[in-house]
């Protein structure tokens, strides 16, 4: 008679929640079986694809349209940027190792690699500051031409992402030093890691499209 099919068996998860009252927030026994914060971070990454898509798209649309110099090929120092790119890539390795440490309950390993990630993040930012000051000295300001406008806003937004990442990791690091294992749990470290790796991916694209293709775009 019934047009409403009843389930053949107990839905997944029902048994566990009988034993334990599920708190009504992040720690809620999850219908997808993963932490809500992790889903949230992946959603943020999907959304950030549009964010950086707009910035990189604008850079490319305006590439080669500057009416006055300096132009990209006058300024870019590929070997230097290769070094900073390398450092950012290796910071992702360090971050992955930190997450590995957190997931295996190895706080010592976590702290060591987290500290290294922070250091490499700061080094990358240092390279960016050096690069900016060098470019400004060479006459490329934010308001000099379209190249300056789009270049600084794109790489600057990425730099802000890196800086916020460094801040986030530093907070985690301090919390880990204080021995607060409740807050420095595998999920919290992992989502910070996801953010960090995403910022790294964006740089992979920026390095290829903005720096290495500079001659073609112009």
């Amino acid at each position: 008679m019934s047009t409403y099919p009843l389930p053949q068996q107990e839905p997944q998860g029902a048994q566990e929640s009988v034993a334990l009252q599920a708190p009504a927030h992040e720690a809620h026994h999850a219908a997808l079986g993963v932490d809500s914060k992790k889903i949230g971070m992946w959603l943020f990454i999907a959304s950030d694809c549009m964010f950086f898509g707009a910035l990189i798209g604008t850079y490319l649309i305006y590439a080669g349209k500057s009416t006055v110099g300096p132009y990209p090929q006058d300024l870019f120092d590929i070997p230097l940027t290769t070094v900073s790119t390398f450092i950012l890539l290796m910071s992702s390795l360090a971050m992955a190792m930190a997450v590995h440490g957190a997931q295996h309950g190895d706080m010592k390993k976590l702290k060591r690699w987290l500290g290294l990630t922070i250091l490499m993040g700061l080094t990358f930012l240092g390279f960016q500051v050096y690069e900016y000051s060098h470019f400004i000295a060479a006459g490329l300001t934010l308001s000099r031409n379209l190249f300056g406008t789009t270049f600084y806003v794109l790489t600057g937004t990425h730099g802000v992402h890196v800086a916020l990442g460094v801040l986030w990791l530093t907070l985690l690091f301090i919390t880990a030093l204080r021995g607060d294992t409740k807050r420095v749990n595998p999920v919290n470290v992992e989502i910070a890691g996801l953010y960090w790796h995403f910022v790294d991916i964006v740089w992979i694209v920026v390095f290829a499209v903005v720096y290495l293709m500079a001659d073609v775009a112009a």
């Binding site: 809620h28 219908a31 993963v34 889903i39």
Partner: peptide, 14 residues
């Protein structure tokens, strides 16, 4: 973000 995660993860069993 909040609504999507809520729908994905906070549904009652079944």
């Amino acid at each position: 973000f909040n609504f999507i995660v809520t729908i994905f993860n906070m549904r009652a069993p079944g």
